[in-house]
Amino acid sequence: MRTTPCPPLWPRWAWRAWAVQYPGRQERFREACVERVDLLVDAVTAEFRPVLGDGLPFGLFGHSMGAVLAFETARRLAGDGRKPAVLVVSGRQAPSLPWPPPGVPSLWDADAALLVEELRLLAGQDAEALDHPALLRLALPALRADYRMLQDYTYVPGAGLDCPVIALAGDRDPRVAVDAVAPWGRETRAGFEMQVLPGGHFFVDEHLPHIVETIGSRL
């Protein structure tokens, strides 16, 4: 796993942002994709432990499948005595709910046409990249790995996190219903907040300053 420091996102706070880059994506496209959440959590926590050694407060953010990864990473780090200051999950139903949700097919082993159709549904007007066969050939293996991870992920109930959880949802998300996001509140003993923002599945692209403000204010 690789964590990459990002440029400063907001001048009001002296904090750093680190982005997780999965194998099989972007500059790591030659690496084999990971198909199990627990293996990704192992890799992410191994990378983050040295970064968190200074004892400063930290938060975790994940969108879509990344919300599951952020949640399980938060639980793992909390078990090591490194409690996050906040967990922000976005565009993902609560982990306790069954996956796939009703009406959504199993996609990790679907043919390419069905997978592209699903991606067009999620991307909406921003689906131009799906018209390029060369880009699709690069992207589809990683997308299948993502869906395989979600298909095989098994939620294990726990005592609940001791950090606040903020759940973000898009009011027009075609696959993540707002009422399926609310049960994230069961995963914490330290306060829960839910925000419904305008947009589809990738509403985060339209609301990045607000999301940065939300995370930074908790740190």
Rank of each mutant, 00 (worst) to 15 (best):
M65E: 04
R82V: 14
V89T: 00
R82G: 06
V68L: 15
L69D: 12
P84Q: 05
A85H: 12
G79R: 13
G53W: 00
L77I: 10
D80N: 04
G81A: 09
L77S: 09
G55S: 02
P84I: 05
D80K: 04
V88W: 00
L87D: 07
M65C: 05
F71M: 01
P57Y: 06
L69E: 10
R75A: 10
V68C: 13
T73C: 15
F58Y: 15
S90L: 02
M65K: 09
H63Q: 08
G81R: 06
V89I: 07
P84N: 07
T73L: 05
M65S: 07
A85V: 08
F61H: 14
S90E: 00
L69S: 11
A67W: 01
G53L: 01
H63W: 03
L87H: 04
V86C: 08
G59A: 15
A74P: 10
E72V: 11
L52P: 03
P84W: 00
V68T: 14
R76A: 15
L56H: 12
L87Y: 05
S64D: 06
P84K: 12
A85M: 05
A78P: 11
V89M: 00
V68I: 15
F61D: 10
L77N: 12
L60R: 03
L52G: 07
A78Q: 15
A67D: 07
P57H: 03
P84T: 03
L77Q: 11
K83V: 15
F61R: 11
A70M: 09
V89C: 01
M65V: 00
S64R: 09
A70V: 09
E72W: 05
V51M: 11
M65D: 05
H63M: 08
G79M: 09
V89S: 00
L69V: 15
A74C: 11
V88C: 02
K83A: 14
G79F: 12
G62D: 04
G55C: 05
P84R: 11
G59F: 08
L56R: 15
D80V: 00
G66T: 00
M65T: 01
G66E: 06
R76E: 15
F71V: 01
G66F: 00
P84H: 05
L52Q: 03
S64E: 02
G79W: 13
V89P: 02
L69R: 11
G66M: 04
P57G: 03
A67C: 08
G81H: 10
K83S: 13
V68K: 02
K83D: 14
A70F: 09
S64P: 04
G66C: 04
G59N: 09
A70P: 09
G53R: 02
K83I: 13
L52H: 05
E72M: 09
G59T: 07
L77E: 14
S64M: 10
P57D: 08
F71C: 00
R75W: 06
D80R: 05
S90M: 01
A78R: 14
D54F: 11
A78V: 01
D80A: 13
A74Y: 13
F61A: 02
V89D: 00
F58K: 08
H63S: 12
V51P: 03
G53P: 02
L87P: 12
K83N: 15
G81K: 07
A78F: 02
L60D: 08
S90Q: 04
S64I: 01
G66N: 03
R75T: 07
L87M: 04
D80G: 13
G55P: 06
L52S: 06
F58P: 11
